[in-house]
Write a protein that binds this DNA or RNA. Structure first.
Length: 578
RNA sequence: GCCAGUGUAGCUCAGUUGGUAGAGCUACUGAUUUGUAAUCAGUGGGUCGCCGGUUCGAGUCCGGCCGCUGGCUCCA
């Protein structure tokens, strides 16, 4: 973001605050920072802001822009500032936060004065254009115990034309919204009858998921992982041991209670649906004794978990209550951990690249204040994470003290086609569970040692990942992922027979192929297939049927002319495996 | 949970100051047999999110729930 744009957004926020103060009574203002795509300003006032107020506010802002009011910077003493903002409690609090000795600056725009570091544009005319987008509640200083203020969101640009461009960009993002595309492309549905946050993968979505899963499993087997299938429920006792009941009970669905045993010996036993797979993978590890020669043991599972996400946090597929993690747990000897982490990082990047994500940043989170486990282990674990990132030449940022209480971690964040950042993979040490479940392996010395345990997900959850993929590709999945890879469309009923033999040929080669035999003109069929974002259309008319060829139309490249079905299959295979 | 919106047919949406619902697409039927982004005609299809209230009468007004959207908080 250029400094100039930032100044414009920031200044626009001041103009909006100024307009709101002039239009309504007794307005207390908080702050108005610029954001990634605009700005917001928080207010405390009696009047409830709503969208109907926007035109009046925007009009007042336009008037301020029209008069080219200068933004006047003044340095003031703390006492002067206190006097100026005596009716603005939030400003006084912000003022109190400014360390003694720092310069206190205020900015005046006409009658409006704001406590602000700046910088600002020279005069309000430089702001150009402002549009209010939405109004929302926001806790003062982001703390839910504080009073809720009213927040106005807006966008600003140097000119109306540039503002329109921003609006167009927002509309582009809206067009890619996975919820909209999920409906249009028949990928998934979430129904009120089943419950909020519980996704159903429809046939088209399921086809994409299976393509993802097949690839995922194949690569895991090729890279030394074993697969597990584990139960969806476990006794309360298990969750007691793992510590989840103590720490995360609110995030778990409430228990279901069954009676075990008869008569006097009958016991009520609560079962919980799993919010994580770890305890189950640990059971698999506890199944037998492991030697140092067996390590590292890598257990992977596409494990479906359920978490009781609070109201108001759900969002399409991005935040759901039931989801499938591409989970794995690695049990590794301490002296091999650095190598193993490097291997894991490499594997993660390999998988993410396949899905078209090349702009990847890592975030390394280190030991927090409250932590379990030997500090020396933390040190070694953190170093192995750091070394792996450096060995892979990855850009990374360090979040000091940002690790979980049970171990340090790396999070992988990707940028999608619109430049938006998403957190996907995570590689996380756990010094808590090996202790709680008393995990061991037999070392070279014949004694029992505790292995390092690493949780690892590459895609995060399949649901969320699918949502991100939909938006990344705007629904136009690459051929290897596309729910329908090929649409066969005869021009008249006379070619249906030949079309069916072509379809059978493609199907037997595992191509996801569909036909459009509707009694429609070819233009209508092409339109439908285009809207469904099918990568390849095979148009079959009398000429093609006669010659035993197909006319190929590619989503990206348009008309590719005619070729035999075999030649088309070769082309398709080359693209899928590239 | 909180603030602000919002909920009408499978989908996208109309529905004027309250007078028991409409269009296009989809689906189905018929005609048409078509050469690269929509052939024509007909027929189906709705407890207007749910519950309650006001009213002679509620999709429309009021209240309470539920869902969804945008935020705040949260995401082991």
């Amino acid at each position: 973001m250029s400094a100039k744009i930032e100044e414009i957004r920031h200044s626009a926020a001041h103009l909006v605050a100024s307009a709101v103060c002039s239009l309504f009574d007794n307005v207390k203002v908080d702050i108005g920072p610029s954001t990634d795509d605009g700005f917001y300003y928080d207010f405390d006032m009696e009047h409830r802001l709503c969208v109907e107020d926007f035109p009046a506010i925007e009009k007042a802002v336009r008037k301020l822009i029209g008069t080219a009011l200068p933004f006047v910077r003044e340095e003031v003493s703390r006492e002067q500032a206190k006097e100026i903002f005596k009716d603005q409690p939030y400003k006084l609090e912000r003022l109190a936060d400014i360390p003694e000795g720092d310069t206190i600056t205020i900015f005046r725009t006409g009658d409006y004065v704001d406590l602000c570091r700046g910088p600002h544009v020279e005069h309000s005319g430089n702001v150009g254009a402002v549009k209010l987008m939405s109004v929302a509640g926001s806790y003062y200083r982001g703390d839910e115990h504080n009073k809720m203020l009213q927040r106005l969101y807006g966008i600003a640009a140097p000119s109306v034309k540039e503002l329109d461009a921003i609006v167009a960009q927002l509309e582009e993002a809206k067009k890619r919204d996975h919820r909209k595309l999920g409906k249009e492309l028949e990928l998934f549905t979430i129904t009120e009858s089943v419950g909020p946050g519980l996704a159903h993968w429809l046939p088209k979505g399921a086809r994409v998921r299976i393509a993802i899963e097949d690839y995922w499993r194949h690569e895991h087997f090729r890279n030394g992982y074993e697969m597990l299938f584990t139960p969806h429920l476990g006794r309360a006792n298990l969750w007691q041991t793992s510590g989840h009941l103590n720490f995360y009970k609110d995030g778990m669905f409430p228990p279901m209670e069954v009676t075990e045993g008869d008569g006097d010996k009958a016991v009520k036993e609560p079962y919980y649906v799993k919010p994580m797979n770890c305890p189950f993978h640990i059971q698999a590890y506890l199944f037998k004794k492991y030697s140092y020669r067996d390590l590292p043991v890598r257990f992977a599972e596409l494990g479906t978990v359920y978490r009781y996400e609070k109201d108001g946090v759900r969002h399409g597929l991005f935040r759901v209550r039931g989801f499938t993690q591409d989970d794995a747990h690695i049990f590794c000897a301490p002296d091999k951990i650095e190598e193993e982490i490097r291997f894991t990082v490499k594997f993660c990047l390999h998988i993410l690249h396949r899905f078209g994500f090349n702009d990847i940043t890592a975030y390394l989170s280190t030991r927090p204040e409250k932590a379990v486990g030997d500090p020396a282990k933390w040190e070694q674990a953190t170093n192995s994470l750091r070394a792996a990132l450096e060995a892979e030449g990855m850009a990374y940022e360090v979040d000091e003290g940002g690790g979980a209480f049970y171990g340090p971690k790396i999070d992988m964040k990707i940028k999608d086609a619109l430049g938006r950042q998403w957190q996907l993979g995570t590689i996380q040490f756990d010094f808590n569970l090996p202790e709680r479940f008393n995990l061991v392996y037999t070392g070279e010395d014949g004694k029992e040692h505790q292995p390092y345990m690493v949780h690892r997900a590459l895609l995060g959850s399949l649901e969320r990942f699918f949502g991100i993929l939909i938006e990344h590709y705007a629904g136009a999945f690459p051929t290897w992922l596309a729910p329908t890879q090929v649409k066969v469309m005869p021009i008249t009923d006379d070619q249906v027979g030949y079309a069916k033999t072509v379809i059978a040929q493609l199907q037997s080669a595992d191509v996801r192929v569909e036909s459009d035999l509707a009694n429609d003109k070819i233009g209508a069929k092409i339109r439908r297939a285009t809207l469904a974002k099918v990568p390849y259309m095979l148009v079959i008319g009398g000429r093609e049927a006669e010659a035993g060829v197909v006319a190929v139309r590619s989503r990206e490249k348009g008309d590719l002319g005619t070729m035999t079905p075999e030649a088309f299959l070769d082309l398709l295979r080359a693209e899928i495996h590239e």
